Simulated scan of single mutants.
Amino acid sequence: MKHLLSLLCATGMLAGLVQPALGSVSLLDGLSFYLDFEGSAPVDTSGKNVVVTNSGVTSNTLTGHYGAIAGVAGNAGFFNRADKDWLQIGLGYGKLAADPAPQPLAYSFTISAWYYMQPESAPTDRLFLYEGDVDYDLSFGIRGDLASSNGSYVGTAYNPGKTNYDVSNAAYYDTTTNEGAWQQVVETFSSDGTTVTKKLYLNGELVGTTSTMAQGSLYSPAINLGTFRDNNGRYWDGFMDEVGLWNRALTDVEISDLYDLTYIDGLSVTSLAPEPSRAVLLLLGIVGLHLRRSRRRA
């Protein structure tokens, strides 16, 4: 018993001092969709049972595909550009003026996805990781850097209302997006009731913020993975893993935590369940110390 009390005391106080802060709100709060590609077919594992329309995408261990790479956490989804593979998530955002109510994600939401682009992709192609089914306010794509001869790629998220891929029209435009490597992209949309601000994060770090757009211009009844809004071209070529949607804008701290957690374990109830607070852990240590001293006096 003495050793148990000592362990309780030491563990509680030490954990209370060194436990990392994972943000005040659990990453499970507002989770509306999650696709981990662990089953035999793409299925929402958030518990919300969102419909995923499949057009050829397979979930596998990746063995035999382009050097047998592994997913970020377990398996990943394989998107073959030659086969025109893509998915559609039956979850919308924003609202049409004629609609009585907004789509489930409304005007403040977050999308997160890990991606791996194949080295075989042609440098001049535009390959879309995701985009809204009817507009491109929500959009992230990769294309060859036409200004360079080294085959490097740029990652681009559109500014609202813009129509071209160039530095003045992108929330993020950089030549550090490489082929053959896992990277994470997160986009957040935050509404103040009138306007919406979009932010783009790469590997847990903020890399771009758009000017605000009119809240009324934001709308799509579904989200496409692996193709652009017209569902008939610019297909993703490679893999995708750990795709999540939240009905709120995640904070900078939460996005950093999300990057760390999914890179290690994938998003799960276990990995994202709220940790005991420092106060609780310290209290356990104090209680253990008090009980130990009480036994000594007895």
Rank of each mutant, 00 (worst) to 15 (best):
M117A: 06
R229L: 12
Y219N: 11
A113E: 05
T156H: 11
N150K: 13
L281V: 05
G56T: 02
G16C: 13
S220V: 02
A15F: 14
Y235D: 11
L202S: 03
P221D: 08
A157I: 01
V287C: 15
E120M: 09
L129A: 12
A73V: 10
G94E: 04
G155Y: 09
R292C: 00
D237E: 12
T210F: 01
F228Q: 07
L87A: 01
F33R: 02
L35D: 04
Y115V: 11
N232W: 06
R143L: 11
S139A: 14
S6T: 14
A222K: 12
S112W: 10
I255N: 08
I255W: 05
P276R: 14
G77A: 03
L250M: 08
F109N: 09
T53W: 04
D135R: 14
L87E: 01
V57S: 02
K2L: 13
Y219P: 04
R292D: 02
K84L: 06
G204C: 00
L35E: 01
H3Q: 12
K95S: 05
G77N: 05
M1T: 12
N169V: 00
S40H: 01
G64M: 09
A249S: 15
K199A: 15
A97R: 01
V167E: 11
F33Q: 03
V185Y: 01
Y219E: 03
F239W: 01
L284Y: 08
Y34A: 12
V52C: 06
M213E: 11
V52K: 03
G47P: 02
A106E: 10
E242H: 08
Y34V: 07
G244Y: 04
L282Q: 03
H3E: 14
E131I: 02
G39T: 02
V280R: 14
D135F: 03
F33W: 02
L284P: 03
Y66D: 15
R278A: 15
Y130V: 03
F37T: 07
L200R: 03
K162C: 07
S149Y: 02
A222P: 08
Y136D: 14
L14I: 15
G94H: 07
A249F: 12
G244Q: 05
G193A: 10
L283G: 14
D44Q: 09
G216I: 01
S32V: 02
L258W: 04
Q103I: 06
E242F: 10
T188E: 10
I89G: 01
K198V: 05
Y130R: 05
G16A: 13
R278E: 13
G288P: 10
S46P: 08
Y263D: 11
F239S: 02
A106I: 03
K84Y: 07
Y130M: 12
S6F: 14
G285L: 11
S277Y: 00
P42A: 05
A97N: 06
S190H: 13
